[in-house]
Design a protein around this nucleic acid. Structure first.
Lengths: 359, 359
DNA sequence: AGATTGCGTGTAACTAGTTTCACAAAACGT
DNA sequence: ACGTTTTGTGAAACTAGTTACACGCAATCT
């Protein structure tokens, strides 16, 4: 035994010169005069260990500053697993609420959450999923609106296949199931229904000249919300007027620009439904700048129920999407706590001051 | 060789019955008729590999559906490392901006970001850091306001020590350095200076009865911002009136409650500085409800420059903290791209409509 | 008393990679 | 043609754990 002892240099690994080599399980076992197996059992909370040995191992661990190597553990399929949260950009309360929902479930169940942003770059997306696959994450949540073209559908199906290879799953959050690939589970909120509810309310109030401002086609959220507007109007027997549909990027400045153009176009408009609260705020600005009084001369309804919009003048009527709940449900599926079925959560229409009967 | 072949059962590991065992490097090497060492070199992008062997290995890998095991790699100190982002709660644009800053740096440098919430529970915080330590993260960013008592300071120093043991570091974000532990690096923005700038502007406009509404003592952000108010008043030779300092939780409803009590207390108040925009929005509500006209009868200045507050009526004057930049700088230190020095970033005063000369 | 059960433990074989070292063969220089 | 480098490769020893299996010994059961 003593030969074996001297045989082993104090720091076996010949790494960096300054880096004090970390004590490992072997060192602890040796110091506690037990086998590695017994030492391992102590840290794995295996009950079949003599209390005496356990104490010696724990004491040695403390003395040597031993910290279990979670990576070695993970390799054996032990220890906490992780799920990945992949989003286009970490922006705003939407991201925060979704992330919080995911983390709350993961945290409660001893899982870790990896968060990454793709910046909309498919190459980065692909690289990221490759890395996550190598790290054997349990699931990848692909969060948010995505391109509506087939290229995304195929990409996503490829990711799902690749992930399945390592027993991981892909879950889409905040966008609907992919057309040709029903096995690709989606957790979404009913975006068209949300916008339809807004239109319904305006029609009920007596509006017929209802405009829509939102992003142009290409992304799921843009198309779904526009679609909600169109189907609601059709359902009410109101003809779609192309002059009433305007394209704007999802920010206040461009929303203001689009609203300004719309309001100065000469077309009669008594109400505007916007794709997002951001655009609605832009519409407020444009209307104000043109001397249009809100809400009596123009009703505006947003979407997202962002913070503070309820304190605008007039308080913005909007649609509240259950972002936190989407995160929760997606995480539950990711962890196998819920069946792998598509989920479509309802939105809540929030009637405030900005929608009234036409003047 | 054929004996060796049959000797190995197709699925060596006797794991779950349905789970098709993953091909590993040995399988690939065998299939490509090279040694594991050579196969390893192929995936490690080691140039000393015959193109012919490389092709055979890659072909075998494809055929067997081989995915490098990143966990095994990580154990060897290869592959992507990760940094952890630990926050009290994943709420609002503050969290989002900080997270985005961290992720942008980490992502660009091939690192992964683990995000977790403590919910303010020190036990969960401790467990979390233990897990992160075991997983050999490169750094833990402890984000946001923390308790001001010594218990936190000691806890944090303990975390730093524990993390140092595994060559990881602790970085505090959005709170100042810990008093007795200067080695504990902090990345913060100048919170007192931000509030002071708000007070300075109000004094310049002619206000002397300037109230403050914010959280009570106990957390760093609450104390720093209040302190900025107090020092600015003192600097201007204005006596501190305890009746002008009100406590409110950081939300609109409680901000409204506190503002209501203040405005109905009989004390003269011509301006309110609030700890956060949330509270400022509550103050708007309370003032409105009491028939006080904004901004001519009452100036209000917030802090955080949350989205949409610039579109309130009147547009909220506030202080813009560089949250994204804080995240960036913290991540740079975490990755060793910047020196381990304390960072204190400036805030930007955003003058809008809610602060005017007293009526 | 003899058989049976069960606890505690160690050996050795796993998890899946990387890397050092030695050694051959090919390429290059004289 | 001969020595020297370069290149490519494989065996084996590492990274740091877990765990199946066997075995000794003590406690309980017939």
């Amino acid at each position: 035994m003593s030969t074996n002892d001297t045989d082993r240099k104090p720091a076996r690994g010949t790494r960096g010169p300054d880096r004090v080599t970390q004590a490992n399980l072997r060192d602890v076992a040796l110091h506690a005069k037990v086998s590695v197996a017994t030492a391992s059992r102590v840290f794995a909370d295996n009950p079949n260990v003599n209390p005496d040995s356990r104490d010696r191992v724990l004491a040695s661990a403390r003395e040597l500053g031993y910290v279990v190597n979670g990576l070695a553990r993970a390799m054996m399929g032990r220890g906490p697993q992780s799920i990945a949260f992949v989003v286009r950009a970490m922006i705003g309360p939407t991201f925060a609420a979704l992330a919080a929902g995911v983390e709350s479930v993961a945290g409660r169940n001893g899982h870790l959450v990896l968060m990454s942003a793709t910046e909309g770059d498919p190459e980065r997306e692909r690289d990221l999923i490759q890395v996550l696959r190598e790290l054997r994450v349990k699931a990848v949540l692909l969060v948010g609106s995505t391109e509506t073209d087939v290229s995304f559908d195929e990409r996503a199906a490829g990711y799902a296949r690749d992930l399945a290879q390592v027993n991981a799953s892909l879950i889409l959050c905040g966008r609907p199931p992919v057309a040709g690939h029903p096995q690709l589970v989606s957790v979404d909120y009913d975006q068209p229904a949300g916008v339809s509810a807004a239109v319904d309310e305006l029609v009920r109030l007596g509006h017929t000249r209802i405009a829509y401002i939102g992003e142009g086609p290409g992304m799921t959220t843009a198309e779904l919300r526009l679609h909600g507007y169109q189907t609601a109007l059709r359902r009410h027997g109101i003809a779609l007027d192309p002059a009433l549909i305007r394209v704007a990027a999802n920010n206040e400045a461009d929303g203001a620009r689009a609203a300004d153009e719309l309001l100065r176009s000469g077309t009669t408009v008594t109400a505007i439904v916007t794709m997002t609260d951001n655009i609605a705020v832009g519409a407020y600005r444009a209307a104000r700048a043109l001397g249009i009084s809100l809400p009596d001369q123009l009703s505006i309804i947003g979407f997202d129920d962002a913070p503070v919009v309820g304190d605008l003048t007039p308080a913005l009527t909007t649609v509240h999407p259950p972002f936190f709940e989407v995160g929760v449900r997606a995480a539950e599926i990711a962890l196998g706590l819920a069946p792998r079925d598509h989920v479509l959560l309802p939105t809540r229409f929030v009637l405030r001051e900005s929608a009234v009967a036409p003047g």
